[in-house]
Design a protein around this nucleic acid. Structure first.
Lengths: 222, 222
DNA sequence: GTCTATATGTAGATAGAC
DNA sequence: GTCTATCTACATATAGAC
């Protein structure tokens, strides 16, 4: 958790165990409600109710609403980045990586946490989709996600010397958008597919996504 | 404009010219503010101010806030759908269509209106991105955009008999998400590309997008 | 059709007792 | 650290004069 908290003074002492638990409950509630209703739609009052604390506690532990939003996004961003970079390291330890391998290292941690990380990770996955889709949160994306995304873009570029960095960046943004659509718009896939009901949720959706993005990225490389 | 307005009685007479102008100004203001600040972040007061009318007029012409939101999204949806279907018709008039041609028929009207349709179309493009990314507006997507999207999915499926409809639906959703990312996240392409500044906005971004999606769709077909 | 005035609820934030 | 009470501002919506 590397969030920079400019509006809050440094704590003088380590917080108590109970304080940390209260804080965690508030952040969980905020994560859920921000994901469900977006920034303005989620009220601090509802967060307090969901967390089982009183309203003033939300301000005490979270600062202003904007501070709280940033804190919630940043909280799991470090863990997600670590998972991605670890996957990339494992890949490179096995020799020359492929575009597909790099892509899977980026995509799999997100989809895996989203599907098997419990309700808070699922909420976080939806929250990331909100942050990524709204230019108003550009500064948050830049702080929390762009460093790792830049590293992955560089890995792909290194595989293809002389390729257009701008096209690689575009292809990576397209891939990220497609990945997030599995969180925001899976219902739409079912709707467009017509008859076929969404029997097994995402049985092969991750493979389908990686197939799509791998071919797309390869198509914009020289 | 085919919006169904369930909460408003049928008008008894045709509205006056001035009334129509007032209504259009209100819808333009609402379009801009909904796009800029999302549903909850945009207040009816600000819309009234931006439109140069008084607050009560917004309710009079737009109904409830949710009604107004639906009306704004539906207003240009018909035109966008028509442009897409016309492009598809022109394509089919020239013989057997290709995946790329079908894709361009879907994508180009959106990017063209977004880039050359003036500030209101640009706002509308951002608004669609909000609607598409948020499951809360699923009913609006279903009413305004899914019929045409379903038709395009069927066109692609017709080119490849025996293909998995679910994969085609997924690939189309991925493609739509990537398309919308050119509206919401073009700044991010510049950021990830590193040095290269965004000199000419989208010089070849549409081509790059279509290259990406064409390859991606082809990859999930048999 | 328009606009003043207002009804009614909720938002974010904080002061100060404990 | 916690919680009561409250401040101030703003939200959506409508009634009724013109």
């Amino acid at each position: 958790m590397s969030a920079v908290r400019t509006t809050e003074k440094q704590r003088q002492r380590a917080p108590s165990k109970r304080s940390l638990e209260t804080r965690a409950r508030i952040l969980d509630a905020a994560e859920w409600l921000f994901a469900e209703r977006s920034f303005e739609g989620a009220s601090l009052r509802d967060m307090a109710k969901l967390a089982g604390v009183h309203l003033a506690q939300v301000n005490f532990h979270g600062g202003s609403k904007e501070d709280l939003f940033f804190t919630v996004v940043a909280r799991r961003a470090g863990e997600l980045s670590d998972l991605r970079l670890q996957a990339l390291d494992r890949l490179k330890a096995c020799g020359q990586p492929t575009v597909r391998g790099i892509l899977e290292s980026f995509i799999h941690p997100y989809l895996d946490r989203s599907a098997h990380g419990g309700p808070q990770w699922l909420a976080y996955a939806r929250l990331i989709a909100h942050v990524s889709a709204d230019p108003r949160w550009r500064h948050i994306s830049e702080a929390c996600f762009d460093p790792v995304a830049t590293a992955f873009a560089a890995e792909i570029a290194a595989l293809h010397p002389g390729s257009d960095e701008r096209k690689i960046a575009a292809a990576l943004v397209f891939s990220v958008s497609a990945m997030l659509s599995l969180t925001t718009s899976r219902w739409r896939i079912d709707a467009l597919a017509g008859s076929a009901e969404a029997a097994d949720d995402g049985f092969g959706m991750e493979t389908c996504l990686v197939d799509f993005c791998e071919a797309g990225i390869s198509a914009v490389l020289p």
